[in-house]
């Protein structure tokens, strides 16, 4: 199981994947908004989405686990 952590504090602007979806490395899986800027968060490796721990509008801190992969 691999975790995708937030690299920055911010608010979740969009979640672009669903549980069970196969994503490729480098794919933008989520967009954060921080200091009025949209920041794309990419999957570091390919994998299948196991859980999504953040919803649109949630505030996340640096290091928070956003998505886990099987």
């Amino acid at each position: 199981m691999k975790n995708l952590e937030s690299t920055m504090a911010g608010t979740v602007f969009t979640v672009n994947v669903e549980v069970g979806e196969e994503v490729s490395s480098g794919q933008v899986v989520l967009v954060l908004e921080s200091m009025k800027m949209e920041i794309p968060v990419e999957a570091e490796v390919a994998g299948k989405v196991a859980t999504i721990n953040a919803q649109v509008g949630d505030f996340v801190n640096e290091g928070d686990v956003l998505i886990t992969f099987e």
Binding site: M8, A9, G10, S34, M35, M37, I39
Partner: peptide, 12 residues
């Protein structure tokens, strides 16, 4: 700006 001068990403 409080930001990375290379990427312009915010730096809180």
């Amino acid at each position: 700006y409080a930001e990375d001068p290379k990427t312009f990403f915010p730096s809180p």
